[in-house]
Design a protein around this nucleic acid. Structure first.
Lengths: 187, 187
DNA sequence: GACCTTCTAAACCGATCAGTCTATTAAGAA
DNA sequence: TTCTTAATAGACTGATCGGTTTAGAAGGTC
């Protein structure tokens, strides 16, 4: 029999895409094995805790990526440049609306009750990091918080509508509108 | 054995709440029977087509409600008053953020591929009805379309974040902000 | 009462679920 | 080479899945 060797990081990325497309409950082990070409032996070798561990590690992986690529830059770099790069990073991460937000999708059904802290933390830190950058760029705290919330709300809503309408253009339009709103607030 | 008699409209409303909380895949027949107190016999009597028919009829029911309560008023009534009532209707329908949008949740996973027309139609008509009212209220077509899209995107995003953060206040804040934006656009 | 239709209850079915186990393979250490 | 260990393939298990069927209860009509 043919034997393929995987790295755990490959496994995380592959399984993540299955959860992203099918949701937590919709992603059965047979779906996962079929779509990833990882056998059950491999999956339970990497994730002895089964589906729940897979989802937890995937969320941690996503979280770490966002911290490095978006939240840290928003906190540490020059705020206007970091915010400008945030729109680009967001657009490419979500493939211009073709890829949904796994954490957002988990939030909408009972999967939320399995990972409440991870879900809450992800969005909380995104809003806080953006609000912090807006404050550093000169906005009052309250306005910064409102604007940051508006941005993350808009991104999530645009992802939902892009999938619902089968029209990814709405995602680009929303990002453009949000960045425009932020820029005019910054003056 | 004790026998309880249900109406089909009761069945639709009860099953709808289960799908809303658990999602399409997450809502197994045993979950549905347990939470609704409807036996399998009753469920398959009302919905011979099983889960798929349940979901289809629930979506049709939701759609009809929105047409009567929101889309028709937006099309037929005085536009500013209809838009003002839309915010209230939206707030009460989604129970100020405690209740998710079933159609939006379906859009995010593969459930979308079972009901693409219903999902697309729901959001398309919402945006069009609101944009139509905005045009009647005096806005240019392009601006009306953009604003209507922004409103529906914001509502969906706020529902996602309300659930993710376990904080329904964000839903009220978003509705207030959106209505403010619309009002200042109308002058 | 008898009869018929509508509806409910629950046993039952094959398929699929998440998860376990055994056998085997590849690769590094000695 | 030989031994050891990490990793893979896939058969297997008991539980649960969506769905079917059978049996009978409730309510109307005559």
């Amino acid at each position: 029999m043919v034997r393929t060797v995987f790295e755990k990081s490959d496994a995380i990325a592959l399984v993540a895409e299955v959860f992203r497309e099918l949701g937590y409950e919709g992603a059965s082990m047979s779906h996962i094995t079929a779509r990833t070409k990882l056998s059950k032996g491999s999956l339970y070798h990497f994730f002895p805790g089964g589906k729940e561990q897979m989802a937890a590690e995937i969320m941690a992986h996503i979280d770490a990526w966002f911290v490095t690529e978006m939240f840290k830059p928003l906190e540490d770099d020059e705020p206007r440049a970091a915010i400008a790069r945030m729109w680009q990073t967001t657009d490419s991460y979500f493939r211009s609306g073709l890829r949904v937000c796994l954490i957002g999708a988990f939030a909408l059904d009972e999967t939320r009750d399995r990972f409440p802290a991870a879900i809450r933390g992800y969005f909380h830190r995104w809003i806080d990091a953006l609000a912090g950058a807006l404050v550093k760029a000169g906005l009052p705290g309250a306005e910064a918080k409102t604007l940051a919330e508006e941005a993350v709300v808009g991104i999530q809503g645009a992802l939902t509508l892009a999938r619902a309408l089968g029209d990814d253009a709405i995602f680009g339009r929303t990002l453009a509108r949000l960045s425009q709103t932020v820029e005019s607030a910054l003056g």
